[in-house]
């Protein structure tokens, strides 16, 4: 039984199925997320499958500005994912609201709605950065299962100077 359990734990790290949710991004981040699936980056090497269905997914990749209308959607998608699960927040807008920060309808980042495990800054981030984010998310899962140390604490958008534009977290 313990063997099976340890196999299951290992398998979790080998098969992170993803769902990608766009909260209203300019599509820059989305294109980069989908670029990860192309032959050049081939994220399926790590067992990643783009399921498009929260009920099958382990990792939620979320992009774009979270606002008052779509936060319910984001929350429900997150809730419909069976645990254990991880959330990767991608791009400046999703991290903190980006250039739309402090707009009347914008919530400043996905982490205000759901617990985010990994932040991938950038406007947009490169596919390599996104893949790295997914792999880091697996590290978080691993730590949660007690199988290793937690990855370096990610830079929280709130940690930085709130006055600075979010784009500063990515590459310019």
């Amino acid at each position: 039984m313990r063997f099976v359990e340890s196999m299951i734990k290992k398998s979790r790290l080998m098969s992170p199925w993803m769902i990608h949710f766009d909260c209203g991004s300019c599509n820059g981040c989305d294109i980069e997320v989908l670029a990860c699936l192309t032959p050049l980056y081939d994220v399926e090497r790590f067992g990643v499958v783009n399921t498009g269905n929260p009920k099958h997914a382990d990792v939620l990749l979320v992009t774009g500005t979270v606002n008052h209308r779509n936060r319910h959607v984001l929350k429900q998608l997150y809730e419909q994912m069976p645990g254990p699960k991880a959330v990767v927040s991608i791009g400046a807008c999703n991290l903190s609201g980006g250039v739309f920060k402090d707009s009347y309808n914008v919530l400043n980042g996905a982490h205000t709605v759901i617990p985010v495990d990994v932040f991938v800054p950038g406007c947009p981030p490169k596919p390599e950065a996104i893949i790295d984010g997914v792999i880091t998310a697996l590290g978080v899962l691993k730590a949660k299962m007690g199988m290793g140390p937690a990855p370096e604490p990610a830079l929280m958008p709130g940690d930085a100077d709130a006055a600075k534009p979010a784009a500063a977290f990515g590459e310019s």
Binding site: E5, R12, M14, E44, R45
Partner: peptide, 24 residues
């Protein structure tokens, strides 16, 4: 599709992982 593709045992990882997930 000129990709490298997942490990040969990938389906087993997938299924084992699914067994470990919370029922919903």
């Amino acid at each position: 599709q000129s990709r490298a593709g997942p490990p040969l045992l990938q389906p087993f990882y997938d299924v084992l992982k699914l067994f470990g997930k919370e029922p919903k």
